[in-house]
Every structure is written in structure tokens, then in C-alpha cells.
Amino acid sequence: TRVETATETAWISLVTALHLVLGLSAVLGLLLLRWQFPAHYRRLRHALW
């Protein structure tokens, strides 16, 4: 049971790290898009909202 718990903890930390990385890359990508294509971003936002 001790090994299982350790594996579970490792998986949880791995998944958390993955989610953090994905979230950060998504935010960075959005910022980059907004910085590179302001007109396109505004049009996209206008279409979405």
C-alpha cells in the first residue's frame, strides 16, 4: 500500500505540473497572438462576444 500511495502522489504531481505547463503555454500563446495580431484579435473577440 505504501508503494501504491507513492505512485499515486507521483501521478498527481505529474498531472498538476502538466496542467500548469499547459495553462501557462495557453496564456503565453494568447498574449503572443494579441501582441502580434491586434486587429485580428479584436475582430476575433468581437465575433466571440
Rank of each mutant, 00 (worst) to 15 (best):
T1F: 11
T1I: 14
R2V: 10
R2W: 12
R2L: 12
R2S: 13
R2A: 12
V3Q: 00
V3E: 00
V3N: 01
V3W: 00
E4P: 04
E4Y: 13
E4R: 11
E4T: 12
E4H: 12
E4K: 10
E4C: 09
T5A: 00
T5K: 00
T5P: 02
T5R: 00
A6I: 04
E8W: 00
E8A: 04
T9Y: 09
T9Q: 12
T9V: 12
T9S: 12
T9K: 11
A10F: 01
A10N: 06
W11F: 10
W11Q: 00
W11D: 03
W11H: 08
W11R: 01
I12Q: 09
I12H: 06
S13H: 10
S13L: 11
S13Y: 13
S13G: 14
S13A: 14
S13N: 09
S13K: 07
S13M: 13
L14I: 10
L14S: 02
L14K: 01
V15E: 00
V15T: 13
V15D: 05
V15Y: 01
V15C: 08
T16H: 05
T16F: 11
T16K: 05
A17T: 08
A17V: 12
L18T: 06
L18E: 01
H19G: 02
H19Q: 01
H19I: 01
L20C: 13
L20A: 12
V21L: 12
V21H: 00
V21W: 01
V21M: 11
L22E: 05
L22P: 01
L22K: 05
G23I: 15
G23Y: 02
G23K: 05
G23T: 13
L24H: 06
L24K: 04
L24D: 01
A26P: 01
A26Q: 01
V27S: 09
L28E: 02
L28C: 04
L28D: 04
L28H: 02
L28K: 06
G29N: 01
G29V: 14
G29M: 15
L30G: 12
L30N: 03
L30P: 02
L30K: 01
L31F: 12
L31V: 10
L31M: 13
L31P: 05
L31K: 04
L31Q: 10
L32K: 04
L32E: 03
L33V: 09
L33H: 05
L33Y: 06
R34N: 03
R34A: 07
R34D: 01
W35E: 13
W35C: 13
Q36T: 15
F37K: 03
F37G: 02
F37C: 08
P38Q: 14
A39G: 15
A39N: 15
A39R: 15
A39P: 06
H40N: 08
H40D: 05
H40E: 09
H40I: 07
H40R: 10
Y41A: 15
Y41F: 13
Y41S: 08
Y41W: 14
R42H: 10
R42D: 13
R42G: 13
R42V: 09
R43M: 08
R43T: 11
R43A: 11
R43C: 08
L44D: 04
L44F: 12
L44R: 02
R45K: 15
R45Q: 08
R45P: 03
R45N: 00
R45Y: 06
H46V: 07
A47D: 06
A47Y: 08
A47W: 07
L48K: 04
L48G: 01
L48A: 06
W49K: 07
W49T: 05
